[in-house]
């Protein structure tokens, strides 16, 4: 366990399950039970189509799960909770093109906030992501990596207790991705933020987190929970080259491979379920 966690659980998921009803009934989530301690960085990694997006929507109160309960700070999540911010994978669709960068961040600030304080909070969150000069630009004038930084700045300006991130770096190039990963580690340190980070990239999940949860294909369950006791601060070159890192990522990779081969072997039923939304 990492040094920064206090031990109390900020997010608790109990018996979470979700089934999409309809013409093609699809069980996206089988059963999930896990906790995210306060101050922790938890990664969730799994094969594509493992119901990760469904899970995040249930956690963030955007969708009502079929089974189970999500607790945030001890309270059951019934509506969209105030203390949680979600960073979407598709930043270009999540940012509003008719608002400037400052306008996009201002969108999440309380409406009664005085003008100077509003400007201050926008400046502060842009500083945190290294985009101080971009306040008056429109999102579509920025590169993909910068747009995702704006989305992160917006989530920070909201001042949540926990950040949920849905494959946030899936559509940026490798160099930008490494920069954004280090940005998240920095943000976590500076704001004492609790982060639940969903990714399909095994290396990324290990590099960032204190704990990695490996998900099966849908209906998803947790295959294993792995504590990542790599030293901090992490380094893109040294950490990834360390023997322990390689060992962890290999273990996870094997586990995910076993998952997919087992599923494919189990017959056409599982394969058909994978193609459903």
């Amino acid at each position: 366990m990492s040094v920064t966690t206090t031990g109390t659980d900020l997010l608790t998921i109990e018996g979470l399950g979700h089934v999409y009803e309809g013409r093609q009934r699809h069980e996206a989530i089988g059963r999930l039970d896990f906790t995210v301690p306060e101050g922790a960085f938890v990664s969730i990694v799994g094969p594509s189509g493992c119901g990760k997006t469904t899970m995040l929507r249930c956690l963030s109160g955007l969708m009502k799960p079929t089974r189970g309960t999500v607790y945030l700070g001890g309270e059951p999540v019934t509506d969209v909770p105030r203390d949680l911010a979600l960073v979407f994978q598709d930043y270009s669709r999540s940012l509003f093109p008719w608002r400037t960068v400052a306008g996009n961040i201002g969108f999440v600030l309380p409406r009664g906030l005085p003008k100077e304080e509003r400007a201050e909070r926008i400046r502060e969150s842009l500083d945190a992501v290294g985009l101080s000069g971009a306040a008056d630009k429109y999102p579509w004038q920025l590169s993909g990596g910068m747009q995702q930084r704006v989305a992160i700045a917006r989530a920070l300006a909201y001042r949540p207790k926990i950040l949920l991130m849905d494959e946030p770096f899936a559509s940026v190039d490798a160099q930008t991705r490494a920069e954004l990963e280090d940005l998240m580690l920095d943000v976590r340190r500076r704001f004492d933020m609790t982060i639940l980070f969903v990714t399909h990239d095994i290396d990324e999940s290990v590099y960032l987190a204190d704990r990695v949860l490996v998900l099966s294909k849908s209906p998803s369950t947790i295959v294993t929970t792995m504590e990542v006791d790599l030293p901090s601060p992490r380094d893109q070159v040294a950490t990834r080259a360390s023997e322990h890192f390689v060992q962890l990522r290999t273990e996870i990779a094997e586990m995910i491979r076993d998952q997919s081969t087992r599923r494919t072997a189990s017959g056409a039923g599982a394969a058909a379920a994978d193609t459903a939304p």
Partner: peptide, 25 residues
């Protein structure tokens, strides 16, 4: 829909989402 979902995730209700997301869009 992602834009509307974004507004919802930041605590905006239906009317607010209509006025600040759907109409400008």
């Amino acid at each position: 829909p992602i834009a509307k979902l974004t507004a919802k995730s930041f605590g905006r209700g239906r009317l607010s989402t209509l006025l600040t997301v759907s109409l400008p869009s």
